[in-house]
Simulated assay, not measured.
Amino acid sequence: MGGLGLFLALLALVGQGNVMGQGAEKRRTGNVCSVDMDCPDNAFCRQSSYCVCKDGFVYAAVNSTHKGCLKEARSGEPCVQHIQCHSTLGVHSECADGVCACVGTAHLEDDRCYETAVVGERCVVDQNCYLGEPGPPRQAFCVRGYCTCQLQFSPRDNGTRCVRDATLGEECEDQLQCAGPGLQCRGTCRCRENWVAHNETNSCVESVKALNDPCEYDVQCDALAGVPEARSPGAALCLGGACSCAYSAHAVGKPPRCWHRRRPGQECRRDEECVSEENEPGYCLSGRCTCKTCSPDARDFGAASTMSQPPLLIAAILAVAAILRH
């Protein structure tokens, strides 16, 4: 076991030396040497045999007649040859106007040039997916070889933007942004006609159109409570999986709608609310429920609402007489 371990260690060391040698070979100048003094500037003599550029330098043409070790350059740094930029920025860089920069089809990210792809285009790494907004958070990722918006985002403008999906009550820029059934964009995501907001789930649910139709939430039955111009909140509920009138309400009209039950003498707003103890339909008079045969009736409300002028006049005369007597 000891011999095998030593063999593997030596093999790894040789492999490491080969890798280092390959890196150095890329910087080999071609000059024969015995000592460092035999090599050009920014190079050293390797194994007393040949010259190699120092770390951070690459061998390239300095001009049309002379080659040498040129300093590697990063984005925005001066350069002479493309290879100075490739060493640090990758192959999607170039030396343009004496300065290292990414080529026109690439962008700079993490100090390296990556070929640019928008949503829907092919990619190799996440850094290819560039939407013109550097820095976190990243909105697009390389998924199975194609740039894709992150979860709960969708593409816009030919894949150059990713827009977050909006929920009920949030601002939106178009219909696609309102994610979920029954939503429409009107500056903010709102429920469409015949849909209502269910606050507990922050979503839209479809309104039920008739009593006894199936439902899941009370809010689906709201349209059956009263009429649009005079609602009767809470008069219709989802009971046993179907829209029904609440226990304190009754169904009136065609098609039937639910109204809170008001007895004779109680305050009211609409005739539909009024019903006697015998369930005889009544009517709303002067803000109070009454009916033809129930008590109190319409005559009671008429007498209660006004007072005849003669009794008032007599009371005034008696008061004046009492004052004059004293």
Results as ranks from 00 to 15, higher is better:
Met1Ser: 13
Phe7Thr: 08
Leu8Asn: 09
Leu11Asp: 11
Gly17Lys: 14
Gly17Asn: 11
Val19Phe: 13
Gly21Asp: 04
Gln22Ile: 11
Ala24Tyr: 05
Glu25Gly: 06
Arg27Leu: 10
Arg28Tyr: 04
Cys33Pro: 07
Ser34Asp: 05
Val35Gly: 03
Asp36Leu: 05
Met37His: 09
Asp38Phe: 02
Asp41Val: 12
Asn42Ala: 11
Asn42Pro: 03
Cys45Asp: 06
Arg46Asn: 07
Ala61Gln: 14
Asn63Ala: 13
His66Thr: 14
Gly68Arg: 08
Cys69Gln: 04
Arg74Ala: 13
Val80Ala: 04
Gln81His: 05
Gln81Leu: 05
His82Ala: 10
Ile83Val: 03
Gln84Ala: 06
His86Ser: 11
Ser87Lys: 15
Gly90Trp: 00
Val91Thr: 10
His92Leu: 06
Glu94Val: 12
Glu94Gln: 15
Ala96Val: 08
Gly98Phe: 02
Gly98Asn: 07
Val99Ile: 08
Thr105Ile: 04
Thr105Met: 13
His107Ser: 01
Leu108Ile: 04
Glu109Met: 05
Arg112Ile: 10
Glu115Cys: 06
Thr116Ile: 05
Thr116Asp: 03
Val118Arg: 14
Val118Leu: 09
Cys123Met: 10
Asp126Tyr: 00
Glu133Trp: 08
Pro134Asn: 01
Gly135Asp: 04
Gln139Val: 14
Gln139Arg: 11
Cys142Arg: 10
Val143Asp: 12
Arg144Gly: 11
Gly145Leu: 06
Cys147Met: 03
Gln152Asp: 09
Gln152Tyr: 09
Ser154Asn: 10
Asp157Pro: 01
Thr160Phe: 02
Val163Trp: 07
Gly169Leu: 03
Gly169Asp: 01
Cys172Lys: 07
Gln177Ser: 08
Gln177Phe: 05
Gly182Met: 05
Gln184Gly: 13
Gln184Leu: 10
Arg186Asp: 13
Gly187Leu: 14
Thr188Asn: 11
Arg190Asn: 13
Arg192Cys: 02
Asn194Lys: 12
Val196Ile: 13
His198Gln: 08
Val205Gln: 00
Ser207Ile: 00
Val208Glu: 01
Leu211Thr: 03
Asn212Tyr: 09
Pro214Ile: 09
Cys215Ala: 07
Tyr217Asn: 01
Gln220Glu: 11
Asp222Thr: 02
Asp222Pro: 03
Arg231Ala: 10
Ser232Arg: 07
Ser232His: 14
Ala235Glu: 01
Ala236Val: 08
Leu237Val: 12
Cys238Pro: 01
Leu239Cys: 03
Gly240Phe: 02
Ala242Trp: 01
Ser244Phe: 03
Cys245Arg: 01
Tyr247Leu: 15
Tyr247Gln: 12
Ser248Ala: 15
Ala249Lys: 00
Val252Asn: 03
Pro255Leu: 08
Arg263Cys: 04
Pro264Asn: 05
Glu267Phe: 12
Cys268Trp: 02
Arg269Gly: 06
Arg269Leu: 12
Glu272Ile: 03
Val275Cys: 02
Val275His: 03
Glu277Asp: 06
Glu278Asn: 15
Glu278Gln: 12
Asn279Pro: 00
Cys284His: 05
Leu285Gln: 10
Gly287Glu: 10
Cys289His: 09
Lys292Asn: 14
Lys292Cys: 08
Thr293Gly: 06
Asp297Gly: 14
Gly302Ala: 11
Ala303His: 13
Thr306Tyr: 13
Ser308Ile: 09
Gln309Pro: 04
Pro310Lys: 12
Leu313Glu: 09
Leu313Ala: 12
Ile314Asp: 02
Ala315Met: 12
Ala321Ser: 08
Ala322Ser: 11
